[in-house]
Amino acid sequence: MWRDALLVGGKDLRIEARSRVALAQIAPFGMIVLVLFAFALGPDQSPLVHAAPGLFWVAVLFSTVLAVQRSVAVEAGDATRDGLRLAGLDPAGIFLGKAAAVGAQLLVLQAVLAAGVLLLFGARVVHPWLLLGTCLAGAVGLAASGTLYGALSAGVRLRETLLPFLLLPVVAPVLLAGTRLWQSSLAGGAPDAGASWMRLLLVFDAVYVALGVVVFGPLTEAA
């Protein structure tokens, strides 16, 4: 399983390194979302700083949809999904590899968007480790759930519109927990106040990683 995961994840990251879709298209899209929110909230910095955590995670969620759609599209051209099946790869390995590749891209996107939030909104980080841990846990959960729902929508003709419809409601706990934890990190609140939200985030991660390992095979075989 781990060998297959490394193989598939390495392949997806190599494809991303060549096509640069995440950096050249998805990251600018996320930045545009942040800038538009900034325009909508007006020139006063106070509401921007207050809203920064939520805006960051909304931008991350939108970017996740695009990253997952790209991950699904990679396996749609020239029936490459059938190629993976024919190779006899462990479905759990395929899931972990694809989720890891999406997760790695999300971490890069989060770094770009976090820089945007700090620079555009003038937010100040008080607990950087909490902020980094939240980003990491959020990326795991979003990548796992996104890859799972990407597989669910893969065989559907209208998958581009179906995926956000399926995924965005499901990842609401990541939005809530991520926003609260970022508020603790930026506003200088005690990190302990975010412990329950971090637990929620970690439980979400564990549930979707486990679910993906178990369900991804039947989903891809049925697609």
């Binding site: 392949k11 190599r14 494809i15 060549r18 020239d78």
Partner: peptide, 8 residues
């Protein structure tokens, strides 16, 4: 189908 990734 040839099962090839265009970017590779």
């Amino acid at each position: 189908a040839s099962h090839l990734y265009d970017d590779l």
